[in-house]
Amino acid sequence: MIINNLKIIVLILILQACKPQKTFVTTNETSPLIKKGEHLQLVSDEFKFTEGPTADEKGNVFFTDQPNNRILKWDAITNKITVYMEPAGRSNGLYFDNTGNLLACADEKFELWKIDVNKNIEVLIDNYKDQKLNGPNDLWIDEKGGIYFTDPYYQRPYWNRTVPEITKQNVYYLTPDRDKIKLVAENLIKPNGIIGTADGKTIYVGDIGDEKIYTYRIDSDASLSNQTLFTKMKSDGMTIDNQGNIYLTNNKGVAVFNKNAVQILNIPIDQNWTSNVTFGGVNRDVLFITASTAVYTLKMNVKGIR
């Protein structure tokens, strides 16, 4: 009996040794992603709810404070924050296009905006097949200038409507010439964060309603195909670094996964919710994190991608 039990124990140990081992690195000096000696820095906690960070060509980060209906700017040189636009269409996700215009998911009236350098606003889209959008939330722009954006439904206190016109919550693509909007991903519960890879071949979409992250292949006509589960995790916004690692955000802070879906880093944030993340700074090596009432920075050894 003892010999048989020993055989079973040895067999279990062998099987465990044969399993692929997942590495996990916490936020300390052992992480190769974080610059040695650097720690999370609170920039400000004077907001109601921060979201949508994106960096311009100089590394300045623009982000939103949606309840206060404004877009703010973090200066990469001075580390100071100023109000860039107020009111701001209750903007959520932001992204700079290929010519320096700031695009905004302005869900006050269910619109997608283009804001030029003089702060002139152009409404790019507000409907799909003559039905009002649910409320654009996050977006990513491809090399051609086309815009992928998520359209979940979050009932806002400033809306008069209480039900959506579009019953499904989808991902859309607005063509570079802005004359056509295409449905590119459906069968999702509540799509939220979205980001594409540097080579333009893959896009990540977070289904926050189902607590899953998916990858899709970007086809030559901008359609999305080959939906594949990347990891089971709730995430709001997301970004990618120049090593292909993806950064996810939720109530536990920032979780970083490598391209093989192995979690390699966790950055705990002392807030109820971490909403989004991007890379800013003059060298694009500052991780800029929006989390509830606050924004944080962390100096990294990796850099963000366009």
Rank of each mutant, 00 (worst) to 15 (best):
R161K: 12
W159H: 08
K119R: 13
I14R: 11
K58G: 03
K80L: 07
I12Q: 08
D221L: 12
K232Y: 06
M300I: 12
S225W: 04
L229T: 13
P67D: 07
R306A: 13
L139W: 07
K303E: 10
I208W: 07
D151W: 10
K168E: 14
M85H: 09
T297D: 07
V117K: 15
K58L: 12
K252Q: 14
Q155H: 09
E57D: 14
F279M: 07
S225P: 03
A222N: 14
G37A: 08
V123T: 13
L6R: 15
T228P: 01
F288N: 02
P157M: 01
D45A: 14
E165K: 07
D97T: 07
K58E: 12
S225T: 13
D285Q: 05
K132M: 11
Q169G: 02
T249D: 03
T162W: 03
N79T: 09
I240L: 13
Q21L: 11
Y153L: 09
A255Y: 02
T175F: 00
G93Y: 02
Q131K: 13
A255C: 06
S91L: 04
D199L: 07
Y153M: 09
Y95Q: 10
S91I: 03
G280T: 00
L183G: 05
N301V: 10
D45F: 01
Q155M: 11
M238F: 11
D221T: 11
N187S: 15
G200Y: 04
N69M: 07
A185H: 04
A185K: 04
V302I: 11
L133M: 06
M1F: 11
K168T: 12
P176F: 06
A106H: 01
V286Y: 04
D270W: 00
A198P: 00
T290D: 08
F24T: 02
G145Y: 04
E165G: 02
S91A: 13
V262L: 08
F110R: 05
Y173G: 03
V83L: 06
D65F: 01
H39V: 10
N250A: 10
Y216L: 08
L248Q: 03
A17V: 10
Q66R: 12
Q155F: 01
I3Y: 05
E46V: 01
Y173L: 10
K299A: 14
N28K: 08
Q155N: 12
N137W: 10
A222E: 07
G59Y: 06
K259G: 06
G146A: 06
T228M: 06
P67Y: 07
R70F: 02
N301R: 11
V184P: 00
V205I: 15
L183D: 09
S225I: 05
T175V: 05
E143R: 11
P268N: 06
I289M: 07
S292A: 15
T274A: 12
P152L: 10
L133Q: 00
Q227N: 02
I213A: 01
T167F: 01
